[in-house]
């Protein structure tokens, strides 16, 4: 474990992503504590440009953009993390059971997975969001998570199938482990790094899906998120009236968050797959 950490911090991409992500995380978590304002409170004129009083100006209703940005980033991270955890959990469960069990169970589970890979997830997301009227941030994360698992399931199944043929599996089987014990003790630990990378991917995908849904007008209720901020900008024509402070900050926050996660992911990929490393 310690060796892995040393290796990870030798990867420049990982460090860049990690530091950037820590920065965003502390902005979103510590910011609201130091600056406890209500992001929905109207404090100034409409679309007033950045000034000493409002670092990032105000939006169409005279609300402080900087405050919105802190709370919005926090909501987006919460939704992304919830979605990532749920998608990874479902994906790993289905993938490892299918891969380890094989036979008819594998056929059925992978059949379901493939059907849900084929159907564009945005369609299911839109329909689910419409059906659920009270969408809190956590509910949204849940909805995104239960549409995002198929890729993870497919990848984990492939990994499990190849791990299954190793010798330590045969030895463990002789000692009389049940299938569940086999998967938990003998399979999953060997692909821990892989699962963690899948989680990072799902995390970033969750944030993006939140933004997409929110921009279409299906965001969380009574909460500000990065996507909701962009939705307001579209709805109230902030872009065409030139109020850049209302939409450029969430755009930068969103892009930096996904970039930091992806950068960590590629860094890990280089560490765990030595073939990608150039000597």
């Amino acid at each position: 474990m310690k060796d892995i950490l040393i290796l990870l911090f030798r990867s420049k991409r990982f460090i860049v992503g990690f530091v950037l992500f820590l920065g965003i995380l502390s902005f979103a978590l510590i910011g609201p504590i130091l600056n406890p304002k209500n992001p929905f409170q109207m404090v100034g004129g409409l679309f007033s440009p950045p000034s000493d009083r409002f670092i990032l100006g105000t939006d169409n209703l005279g609300r402080d953009v900087f405050t919105q940005l802190m709370y919005g980033t926090r909501t987006s991270l919460l939704i992304g993390c919830t979605a990532g955890l749920i998608a990874t959990t479902i994906g790993v469960t289905i993938g490892s059971i299918a891969g380890y069990k094989g036979g008819i169970i594998e056929e059925v589970l992978m059949g379901i997975t493939n059907v849900f890979i084929t159907i564009p997830s945005i369609v299911i997301l839109i329909l689910l969001s419409i059906a659920i009227k009270a969408r809190s941030a956590v509910v949204m994360g849940l909805v995104i998570g239960i549409t995002a698992w198929p890729w993870t399931a497919r990848a984990v199944r492939a990994q499990t199938s190849s791990l299954k043929t190793r010798e330590h599996i045969d030895i463990a089987r002789i000692t009389g482990f049940s299938s569940l014990e086999m998967i938990i003790y003998e399979i999953l630990p060997y692909m821990f790094s892989y699962i963690f990378m899948a989680f990072i991917l799902q995390f970033s995908g969750g944030i993006l899906n939140e933004a997409t849904l929110s921009m279409l007008g299906l965001g969380p209720f009574q909460t500000v998120s990065l996507g909701v901020m962009l939705h307001w900008s579209l709805l109230w024509e902030a872009v065409r009236t030139g109020a850049w402070w209302a939409f450029i900050p969430p755009v930068i926050c969103l892009s930096m968050t996904t970039f930091s996660l992806m950068s960590m992911n590629t860094g890990m990929d280089e560490v765990f797959n030595p073939r990608l490393r150039r000597s």
Binding site: S204, L208, A211, T212, M215, L230, S233, V239, R240, G242, W244, F247, I248, V251, L254, S255, T258, F259, M262, S263, T266
Partner: peptide
Amino acid sequence: LVFSNIPYYCLAIVFLYLLAV
């Protein structure tokens, strides 16, 4: 890596603002 991580609509907003508006 940078471009693929900018969501389409973010790039769209930036382009619309800078190049059009």
